[in-house]
Design a protein around this nucleic acid. Sequence first.
DNA 1: GCGAAGACCTAGTTTTTCTAGGCCAAGAAT
DNA 2: ATTCTTGGCCTAGAAAAACTAGGTCTTCGC
Lengths: 290, 290
Amino acid sequence: MSVHPPRPSGPPLNALRAFEAAARLGGFSRAADELCVTPGAVAQQVKALEDWAGVALFDRQAQGVVLNDMGRQVLPLATRAFDQVAAMVQELRAVASPNRLHIAALPAVAQLWLSPRLPGLRRALPDLEISVTAMEQPPNLERDPFDMTLFFGDPAEGEQIADDVILPVCAPALAGCLAEVADLARLNCLSDSAWAGDWPLWLQQAAGAEAPTLRGPVFSLYALAVQEAVNGAGVLMGHRCLIERDLREGRLVAPFDQPVATGKALIMQLRQPVRTPLARLAAALRESRL
Amino acid sequence: MSVHPPRPSGPPLNALRAFEAAARLGGFSRAADELCVTPGAVAQQVKALEDWAGVALFDRQAQGVVLNDMGRQVLPLATRAFDQVAAMVQELRAVASPNRLHIAALPAVAQLWLSPRLPGLRRALPDLEISVTAMEQPPNLERDPFDMTLFFGDPAEGEQIADDVILPVCAPALAGCLAEVADLARLNCLSDSAWAGDWPLWLQQAAGAEAPTLRGPVFSLYALAVQEAVNGAGVLMGHRCLIERDLREGRLVAPFDQPVATGKALIMQLRQPVRTPLARLAAALRESRL
DNA sequence: GCGAAGACCTAGTTTTTCTAGGCCAAGAAT
DNA sequence: ATTCTTGGCCTAGAAAAACTAGGTCTTCGC
């Protein structure tokens, strides 16, 4: 009598994934966003799971859903489970094409720091196939298909590539108009929407309380702001590691010699385990100079 | 620019599951068995995964498939991942219906040890809904939907409920024919196909080298063999903890007073974490007497 | 009171998954 | 040596699952 009784099979995996995403992100719409489906699809999957379990996992409220007790108890395990699944997928990716490396970087870093180094990199590592994706938020290396991240953050979070120092810069033609900090009030002060705090921080550190009120265009892309500064459109709060070349080659100058450290740094993180191709890329980037 | 680039989505989860099962069990057919689908379905899922990764994970050979290097590298992560997924599902089950408990037991244990105790158990724990499934092999509590297992095994594997002691037993009417061990050769010696080693072990321990050759019917269900012994069909190698009541109530007697320990024991394992309902069931079983 | 968010429902469509049945290769058995 | 058995592959069609679309409802914030 070795009749293996047909095991009562578990719930559909996709329903579990939908639940996990919805619970972690706190809403069906956000989950739908992450999973690239419509919110209705997520609602259905979650409902299917709740039907399977015979119990509700979310409290439905008018302005969204919130996890109930049951849901709160399973969420940690669910997240661990899908972390593991994602780790397996990444491992599979890495094993299947070990020479294909994917870097995630802040748009500004991708365009201003990484992009100039890429040609040399590809020359030094011709056998590696390097892709770059720009994004605002650092991805989770355990989950997302990236091998390396380059973002600004706390120096403790990873390997520090450069410290983050800011200082006003502008086209050489404009430098003459800037004798002292107060002159800034008479010029356009370019800024990046993601780094809105840069000007106030610098003014506070460099000029003390006597900070002039500033005005000027706001860009959503730092590289664009840099280009505008080169074009003479105004004074930009420059992040030194991103405009090294423009400074060295004279397209930009720093009218005030008062750099201010932001306390952050350009951080590199590597996907674990680090295999040879990734280690080579990381080494090449560490040593890269412009 | 907060355009989250549509993440390159991973492979279908079901394909990963098919791969994991096939790799762990070493064959598409066995995986199909476990997943309750046809082997063709598993083959397709695995192929889909290999296509996604762009690389083969199995070597196809005429007498089956074997993992190749790539597959071997991802299998550990895959197994961990699906262990976690299963753990989450079990947690969900347990949280959703905490009073529904499912015991997995060896068929002999289910029928001869557990079954007589169940009425008392249900009386003592009326709020618990106790199910029992008989199976030959202990299930993996991390993966399969059981809360408790009752199997014979090494005492170190779990909590020992009873030690496993064997001794020949028969109907009282037959006992007169058995004055010494050698008399066994003249009677039917009932045995269970899953415990073929019992007679040889006992003979060796109890009778030394002078073990007579035995003959008799073989049963695939131990409870059936016990019933036949009660009916006077022959001498059965009895596991004491399974036939306590028959001995006490005189339906069976032990003609030789030479019990032999098999070195195994009746072992109880509990699914972690142990919640109140399961703890109550375990306590009730520990204290249960016939 | 009105618009925006967020979720639900249902019907219908699209995609995925599964089965069935035939085929093939290589060991094992006769 | 021939036949049988095992285990996998393939394809077409069927079945099941998942998704979308569009309409509705409720509550919050203005």
